[in-house]
């Protein structure tokens, strides 16, 4: 399982930066059946949190209506140099994290 994030490497203090994230996941809805009629259990990513130097700046709650390999694009204010930490979690103990450094001038 892997995840990708796109965060600008540098930014001016107070600038609104755009963040793009992608995580590999099938996002099985739980509403599908096999040809034999057996229901396929739900297996989705339920949350993504983004922490900026330990403070939560964005959180998304996802439902089965989100496409496979969930893509999310959002924004945050570049306040100080540091690390943005992304954590995805979901069904069956799914947990992936990724981090990106940003230097703010």
């Amino acid at each position: 399982m892997n995840a990708r994030v796109n965060v600008p490497k540098t930014a001016k203090r107070g600038e609104v930066i755009e963040i793009k994230t992608l995580v590999a996941h099938t996002m099985e809805t739980g509403f599908r059946r096999t040809h034999l009629g057996a229901p396929i259990p739900r297996n989705i990513v339920t949350t993504l949190t983004c922490n900026y130097n330990g403070v939560e700046v964005f959180r998304a709650e996802l439902h089965p209506s989100i496409s496979a390999n969930p893509y999310l694009q959002f924004t945050t204010v570049a306040t100080e140099s540091g690390t943005l930490e992304f954590r995805w979690s979901g069904d069956n103990g799914f947990s992936v994290s990724e981090a990106a450094r940003i230097s703010v001038t």
């Binding site: 700046v57 964005f58 709650e61 989100i66 945050t76």
Partner: peptide, 21 residues
């Protein structure tokens, strides 16, 4: 329900993009 996005003053802009079914 499709999705819920929690924002705050630190978002800078209230704008989110994703892909849905």
């Amino acid at each position: 329900e499709m999705a819920t996005f929690h924002l705050g003053p630190r978002a800078g802009r209230a704008q989110v993009a994703t892909r849905v079914r």
